[in-house]
Design a protein around this nucleic acid. Structure first.
Lengths: 192, 192
DNA sequence: TAGTTACTAGACCGGTCGTCATAGTTTGCG
DNA sequence: CGCAAACTATGACGACCGGTCTAGTAACTA
């Protein structure tokens, strides 16, 4: 089926942005359609599952975008420790640039909705899974065993997510700096 | 002023519970008063600032409770590494027992509301601050310098928060286990 | 009993998400 | 070209729920 308009894509972009910064319940349909520039009916034409479906797809878009950024950042780095550090720095910068609005694009929605909508929860879990896979693959290519890479990636991901949460809450990126230092030494110890 | 009812306290308890599991926007006033067993009008008598004030106070209650638990867990442990491990285990157990409903009592609200209500954001930031202080003080008593203890506590807190987020999203406490292992070795290395 | 304080009930209005009947536009085909 | 079928857009509408506030009742005080 060939699309003849970009309405669907615009809605998705608007939704990705709004859910990222405000979360699921704090974002109303009216806001979604006004930012997306589409009438209400069109939303239900393109997303028959309503707000829930829109959110699930927007989450998928957001996480795919960040996944690409992640891959690029580590690929461009001279070694594993610097690669992860670059990721932390990029996220910290994004937080600063947005006046502490844009943290993790999944976390807000994930916590907001995880125990309410299985569809959205899975979308978030898949997003985290894709990031995990991308980073773990990279660490394996840097010489780590599959198991060590998997566990280390979990630690990296969790630290960053927690760091973003603390930084956003305190309006201060100091936590992320402490995380960056810790991850650097941890990775240097393991990868050599 | 002599209180004639315990309505205020009941509202606070109900709010702490509901905001913990559902977040701010997902929790309606009707649900709050039905769980709290209070008439709607009473809410604005006890909390003239409305939902926002109620949330800010409920967050304070939640974080104080968990702070006590934290202090007790580490105090009862034979050493720093076991103390932190006990904290992770307790939170993982609480997540499991509640069928992945109860993660961090602050995180959901913090992300949901941080960029919307300064009052609630501060309440969350204070909560995190109190946990940080409790753990950092403990690590200092275990022999770490003030600076090292502060940074290490930030890493511990962020890892745990991130681990709770990932675990809740995946409905699987495996991330928390990986965090626990990592924190144990990290702390053993520093405290000896 | 009059006055003051503690508390409650429910009306209010704006906003929520979702539905629908209708209209317009593009494409494929004869 | 002409027409039908498929695709897309539209926004009014409804049922409901959101948070807020005013007007009121009950309880204690003097």
């Amino acid at each position: 089926m060939v699309r003849r308009t970009d309405t669907r894509q615009r809605m998705l972009d608007a939704a990705a942005e709004l859910f990222h910064t405000q979360g699921y319940h704090a974002t109303g349909l009216n806001q979604l359609i006004s930012v997306g520039g589409a009438p209400k009916g069109s939303l239900y034409f393109h997303f028959p599952g309503g707000k829930e479906q829109l959110a699930a797809e927007a989450i998928a878009v957001s996480s795919a975008q960040l996944c690409e950024v992640l891959k690029k950042l580590v690929a461009d780095a001279p070694n594993a420790a610097s690669g992860i550090e670059a990721v932390v720095n990029a996220l910290a910068q994004s937080l600063l640039d947005s006046d502490f609005q844009r943290g993790c694009p999944l976390a807000t929605v994930a916590l907001d909705v995880a125990s309410e909508s299985e569809l959205i929860r899975r979308s978030c879990a898949d997003g985290y899974g894709s990031w995990h896979d991308a980073l773990a693959d990279y660490l394996v290519r840097q010489g780590l065993s599959t198991e060590r890479a998997a566990d280390l990636t979990t630690v990296v991901l969790a630290s960053i997510e927690g760091g973003l949460l603390l930084a956003k809450t305190k309006k201060d990126i100091a936590p992320l700096r402490a995380i960056a230092v810790h991850l650097r030494t941890t990775i240097e110890r393991e990868v050599g």
